Simulated assay, not measured.
Amino acid sequence: MLICHCNIITEREIEQTIVGLLDQDPWQLIVPAKVYHAMMKRGRCCGCFPNVVETIIRVTEEYHARSETGATDVVSHLDRVRALRDQFGRKLNERRSTSHRAA
């Protein structure tokens, strides 16, 4: 699926980049700008960033579920990330209505 129309980036490319970053350091903070920097791209309109955040969370959960780390650490961390996203991230989304988002 095409995530970023400005740079023509697919979901698979983003997932592979996230896994590559997690292979370097499984507990690093991954944000959309870090993913784009690793892909040598830049966010142009940044309308895809909410979808990239959802992909980061999903891929990180799957990555840590496959690894040998304790599941309680992963769940508590991701719950805090989701709570912050709900608290701060969903009010205004680049001043776009939800009908203009892909997800």
Rank of each mutant, 00 (worst) to 15 (best):
L2P: 02
I3D: 02
I3K: 01
C4P: 00
H5Q: 09
H5S: 12
H5N: 13
N7E: 15
N7L: 12
I8A: 08
I9Q: 03
T10R: 06
E11L: 11
E11Q: 15
R12Y: 13
R12L: 14
R12E: 15
R12M: 13
E13T: 11
I14H: 05
I14T: 04
I14Y: 05
Q16A: 08
T17D: 04
G20A: 09
L21M: 12
L21G: 06
L21H: 06
L21T: 08
L22W: 10
D23N: 15
P26I: 05
P26C: 06
W27E: 09
Q28R: 15
Q28T: 10
L29M: 09
L29H: 08
I30D: 11
I30T: 13
I30F: 11
P32D: 05
A33I: 10
A33R: 14
A33V: 12
K34E: 02
A38E: 14
M39W: 07
M39L: 15
M39T: 07
M39Y: 06
M40F: 05
M40W: 06
M40T: 12
M40S: 10
R42N: 09
G43P: 08
G43I: 13
R44N: 10
C45D: 15
C45G: 11
G47W: 08
G47P: 04
F49A: 07
F49E: 09
F49N: 04
N51E: 08
N51C: 05
V52P: 03
V52G: 05
V53Y: 05
E54F: 04
E54G: 07
E54V: 03
T55K: 08
I56W: 04
I56S: 05
I56F: 06
I57Q: 12
I57C: 11
R58E: 15
R58C: 13
R58T: 14
V59F: 09
V59A: 13
E61S: 10
E62F: 02
E62K: 05
Y63M: 08
H64M: 03
A65F: 05
R66V: 01
S67G: 11
S67A: 10
T69Q: 03
G70W: 00
G70F: 00
G70E: 01
A71C: 01
A71P: 00
A71G: 02
T72V: 06
T72N: 02
D73F: 00
D73G: 01
D73L: 01
D73T: 00
D73I: 00
V74A: 03
H77I: 02
L78C: 01
D79N: 10
D79I: 00
D79Q: 14
D79C: 04
R80A: 11
R80P: 01
V81M: 12
V81Q: 06
R82S: 03
A83V: 04
A83F: 11
L84G: 03
R85N: 13
D86S: 12
D86L: 12
Q87I: 00
F88K: 14
G89Q: 02
K91R: 03
N93M: 15
E94P: 01
E94N: 13
E94S: 09
E94F: 07
R96Y: 11
R96N: 10
S97D: 13
S97F: 12
T98Q: 12
H100M: 04
R101A: 15
A102Y: 13
A102Q: 15
A102K: 15
